[in-house]
Structure formats: structure tokens, C-alpha cells
Amino acid sequence: MKKCRRCTKPATLHITEIRNGVAQPLHLCEKCAKKYLSSVEAGGNVEDPVGEGGNELVAALAGEDSADADALTCPQCGITFKQFRSQGRLGCPHDYVVFRDELIPLLESIHSETQHVGKIPQRTPAISRKQHDLIRLRSDLKSAVQNEKYEEAADLRDRIRRLEEELVEEQSN
């Protein structure tokens, strides 16, 4: 779960500010979100480009946001997010953990998806293989429904249900 950008509590409110046509995501905890929203109200119309309180906050958050991300450093290979952004190559497998939140929007724009559904290593334990199958089947189900292939969708639903039951059984053992 993402952390609040103002304090260290988990972020529960996700606000997207549109400013001059640019979407700026804000992740805040409930308390900070209240503060933010009241300051927006106090500062006037959010849509108003010369509005004061709200604007300053947005500007500050935006700056803080990217500076924060740029400074992120992988403890294993030492690469910073800023270095990755300029070189376009990650330093080591662990970067996908350290930069996860920053990589998600990037992966979304490249691949339109962020969850792997393809081949998995055979040495993966049986339980996580099944969990992986579940992810893949759910993704298949989604596209079957989209393509109005209802017979296929029904079949997939059955397989998902069976797999879910198996998993519950195995995990309780």
C-alpha cells in the first residue's frame, strides 16, 4: 500500500488533480486529505489557475513527489530512480521492488497491464503456481466477457471456482 505523501501513514485517499490538462496523482491519509481539501476550499476554486492555498500545496506536492522518487536508491545495486530515468535501464532485479510504485504507471503506459500472466519458472512452489494460474484465468475471463464469448466465460468461471477451492484447502492444511 502507498504511504501518505504528507506523513507516513498509509494513504487511503487517492486524488487526481487536473492542472492545465496535466493529471497529478496525490496519495494522502484521511487526516492529511481533510487538511488538503479544506485548504483547497479556503484557497478558492481548484480550477482557478491563480487560486492560492490549493495551488501552492499542489505545486509543493508535485515537486516533493518527483524529488522523492528521484532520490529513491536501490540498496542492492545503488542505482537511483533519477539515474534509471535518464538511462532507461534498471540496475538489478531488486529495483522492481524498490521503485515499484514509480514503475507501475510506466508499465501501464508501455504494456497497458501491470500483472504478469505468462510462463512462470517450473521451480515455483505448487501453491504460487496455482495462484498464478488464477491470475491468468481471471485475465482470460475478462477478455472473454469483453469479446462476448459467454460460453468460454462460463467455463473459465468454473475453473476459477475449482482452483479457488483447491487453494483454500491447501492453505488450510
Binding site: 532507461g88 535501464r89 534498471l90 532485479p93 522492481y96 521492488v97 514503475l103 510506466l106 508499465l107 508501455i110 504494456h111 501491470t114 500483472q115 504478469h116 505468462g118 512462470i120 519458472p121 517450473q122 521451480r123 515455483t124 504460487s128 495462484q131 498464478h132
Partner: peptide, 23 residues
């Protein structure tokens, strides 16, 4: 794969140097 452990994540699949190849 029988002999080597590949970088793999449940979420992102096979991890690659460039995010354009991941999964």
C-alpha cells in the same frame, strides 16, 4: 531453468534490464 535461478516476480514476471521487456 533447471540449473539457474532466474529473476522472477509473481507480479511482474521475468525481470529485465529494460521495463519494455519485463513479464
Amino acid at each position: 531453468e533447471k540449473h539457474l535461478e532466474f529473476a522472477f516476480s509473481e507480479e511482474f514476471g521475468y525481470l529485465t534490464s529494460c521495463p519494455t521487456n519485463v513479464g
